[in-house]
Design a protein around this nucleic acid. Structure first.
Lengths: 218, 218
DNA sequence: TTGGGAATACCAAGTTCTGGGTATATTTGA
DNA sequence: TCAAATATACCCAGAACTTGGTATTCCCAA
């Protein structure tokens, strides 16, 4: 039997969910909480469920912060968010902090139980509409692919600059003279339209001009 | 009727998918392609489907590049990837380039038709296992949350520095003296362990020390 | 084969940064 | 309330950056 806890300050709704869970033949809900702090206390005592269903809008610590706090105590606990919010910000934050499911409160009993089953089976649960939003977040963060006509050598030097290296250091690394590096730097500035080192680094990282940019998938 | 095109260099598999689609009562598949270039030609002629099912490993231009090229011609076309690859890199690239569904080749006929229906209904299709991977990408890119004990004022100045502004410019903006800004900069350098402006900017952006970091959700 | 892009190298002046200080108000938390 | 943290401000010397030049060599594509 999958042990489930609920964090939900609307007692009536909380009871409904509990009933749905307890009427299923695979899950049990032993505890209902109205705030995150009480959950943290229980977890600290070593008491632990398999899955926590949590609201986001909660008195005191909100659900997003709650995910972080809960995972800090026990990162094995799977968390499914159950909320009315469907904005990108909330979805993004919940997933970033380690949620493994995101349900809207208009979900049916079947959908809720299905989401639980998915998470038990090692998957992540999100409906097609919310998935569309998640997908669009990825497209939004896509690199702009501007190249500004940076040459190979310039690109090499750009990478060193972004690392915080000085012109003299780069000259030593590339076995050329500081003047040469300086000329390349000058040309890079002209090409990407900046006139400070910091502006260069900022633009290079944000526009993905450097190989080791923002984040990488490994 | 939803018009579907298939891009798949394995003719036998392509035919199977076509049969599945044509046996359904909502979709038709009129064209099968074995490479992306032929698809681009058709699109350029103004001929257009509702959804394209595409493989990733294709002769010539691969499926990921294909998504980009297709969207460049007609961004209304929905694209579902149908592949054997389930690595983060491929999934990430496909979604970033605008795919609205990601199916593995071991999917059943029902799963394929369901994915198509989801996309037609304006959602995005991904199974629970792959969703888990997508979710983990978000957690992976999570900001490290190191603060280095940066104060409010320092943080404000840090933001200007990352914008490429000079000490003098910042002094004017914040209505303080350049010396004061310089002192703050000095303290920031000490706190986050850097000794060049570029190193500062690089670290600040990559570790999410600035508000407008990497990417934002709007 | 030849013109142009790319990489190399140097000069110089003015600006900005870096790191070493010192010092005083103001705010804030214990 | 009182010490600590924060924000303010200044000095200075050496290093690094920025911007304006000029010039040669190398390689590649037309």
């Amino acid at each position: 039997m999958t042990k489930i806890w609920i964090i939900e300050d609307n007692i009536a709704y909380s009871h409904i969910i509990r009933t749905i869970i307890n009427q299923s033949d695979c899950c049990t809900c032993e505890y209902e909480f109205t705030n995150v702090v009480d959950v943290l206390k229980q977890l600290s005592k070593g008491n632990t469920p398999d899955i926590i269903l949590t609201d986001i809008n909660l008195p005191g610590m909100n659900g997003i912060e709650g995910i972080k706090a809960i995972k800090a105590i026990n990162k094995e606990v799977e968390i499914i968010v159950l909320t009315v919010f469907d904005d990108n910000e909330k979805i993004f934050d919940a997933i970033c902090n380690g949620a493994n499911g995101y349900l809207l409160k208009n979900s049916s009993a079947e959908e809720i139980l299905e989401a639980i089953q998915i998470v038990v089976d090692g998957g992540s649960s999100i409906n097609a509409g919310l998935a569309r939003k998640v997908f669009s977040m990825f497209t939004a963060m896509k690199k702009t692919e501007k190249s500004y006509g940076i040459t190979k050598r310039e690109s090499e030097i750009l990478n060193y600059l972004v690392d915080g290296k000085t012109v003299n250091e780069i000259a030593k690394i590339t076995f050329t003279s500081p003047q040469t590096v300086q000329t390349h730097v000058k040309n890079i500035y002209y090409k990407i339209h900046v006139n400070t080192r910091s502006g260069l680094v900022s633009k290079a990282i944000r526009e993905g001009l450097v190989t080791k940019g923002g984040f990488t998938m490994n």
